[in-house]
Every structure is written in structure tokens, then in C-alpha cells.
Amino acid sequence: MSIRLEHLNYIYSAGTAFERQALHDIDLELPDGQFIGMIGHTGSGKSTLIQHLNGLLKPTSGRVLYNGEDIFAEGFDLKQLRSKVGLVFQYPEHQLFETDVFTDVCFGPRNLGLPKEEIENRALAALQQVGLKEKYYTMSPFELSGGQKRRAAIAGILAMEPEVLVLDEPTAGLDPKGRDDILDQVARLHSERKITVVLVSHSMEDIARYVERIIVMNHGSVLFDAAPRKVFRHYRELEQVGLAAPQVTYLVNELRAKGWEIPTDATTVGEAAQAILGALGSASSTQA
């Protein structure tokens, strides 16, 4: 089970004066159960790419395979695919529209044609998964705070029980605690339900904390595709394409430049603290 992108090219407004190639020969495999981060500057092709994963965009050339099947082959059930690959767009709360939260979350599964009881069970489960308290279920979505609305919108996707969850900047505009809450819940879903998660983010610190693999997009191509430690080692190249490494990566590199014997691949606060303690400890023990 996986999603495969083969030699994917996508051109906006092909054949017009506004023609622009957004994706160049993308070859990627997203195996089951991975937690993947995707980074890239504005306009690097991230959003175009993720819209191919559930067939919202059709490649100009190349193929998208879901579990080995070409999703644009004749007879392939795209509706079914869209219930399996759930896409949470930027500012998903702008898409809330029902009179109360619970009905809004039911919208997806109802469109799948499920029996009423199943729809309601799924909606309840989804709302619990995003940690939204029961008192909000009957409220209008517009009475909720920013973070709560965001969770209600994500619950709407989860109620479809997707196997792959793609989130496009799910934490933009949220306060630090709201950011951690949502990402912690996504991480829990990933570990408990073994779903594949693709997290698009502009926060290198968030990416470093949660994902096991980072895909770096630049001008419509894949620049790096590796584990966070390996990707952030290239922080100078990342800066050239409008990105950065987590701040702690700069910290350990500065210490290294001052002559410390310290590994430079720390990407989280905990790793950096450990590395510093280790370096100070070994410095004092060599003296002893």
C-alpha cells in the first residue's frame, strides 16, 4: 500500500501566455505509515504537488499510482480515493458551513452514502480524536475560537477515515499551545491508527520535532528527500532556497565553529541540550 508519483509534470495554463511549469519530473514514493514533512518557499510547488495525491489535479504528464493503480486510468474510482486520501487545506476553518459542529463533521461521511448510525459514530470518533469537548458539538462552528475551528475542520476529514492524511500548514496563525496541541494529536493518530501523514509547514522547528522524513521542494523539483538530521545538515543550501534549519541546529554549528567537539546534527531543543551537556561533560572528563 502506497502512493507513487512517477515522472510527474504539471503545467498551469498550458498553451496560453500565462503558461508556467509548477512541477518538474517528480518521482516519489510515499509508503504506508510514514510521517512525512514537506517544506519549500512560497511558490515552490508544495500545494500543487499535494493536490495530485487525491486526484484534484491531473498531471500534465506522468502518473499517480495508489496501491499500484493509476488513479487517472479509466474506471478508477476517484470518489473512493478521496475518502482514502484526506486533504486538509490551509485555513480549513473557512470551509466550515453547517449550523452546528456535529452536522458539519457528518458532511463527509454522509456523502459517502453510509448509514446514519455509522455516520454519527464516525463523527463522534473524529471529534474525540481531535480533542474537541462535547459541549462544542451543538454550537455553531462560528462561535468557536481559531484553534477549535481548525480542529473541527480536521475532524471533518478524519470522519472519512482516511488512510493518508495530508495537512497544508495546519498550524498557521495558531498560538504556540494550539500549535503543539494539533500536532500532538496528529502524531497520536499517526501512531495509533498507523495512517500516513504528510505535513506541509513553514516551521522548521515543528517539522524537526515530528517527522521521520523531509521532502524539500524548490522551483517545482525535489531538492532533498531524507531524514531531518540529514536534510538540516544542508542548512546553507536551504537558506539559498528561502528556507532555514531549526534554530538549535545553528546553535550547535556555532559552538562547533568555536572549536567545541560537538555533533552538529541536533534538530530539536532536547537533542541540542543533550549534545551540549555531552560536549561539556567529555571536556571535563578528559581533564580529570
Binding site: D175, E205, Q247, V248, L251, A273, I276
Partner: peptide
């Protein structure tokens, strides 16, 4: 529900581990 800069967090972690660092470190 707020946070502090990452450099401050690292300093805080190091203080908790017993390093004698001053409070209020803001930057790398």
C-alpha cells in the same frame, strides 16, 4: 499557552540539568 525562543528553551533545559547559566538568555 505561549512559548519562548528556542535558545531560551535550550538554556532552560541546561539550567535544569545543573549548568550555572544566567536567566533571560534570548538568542543563540
Amino acid at each position: 499557552r505561549l512559548d519562548v525562543p528556542q535558545a531560551t528553551l535550550v538554556a532552560h533545559e541546561l539550567q535544569k540539568a545543573g549548568l550555572p547559566l544566567p536567566d533571560g538568555i534570548l538568542s543563540n
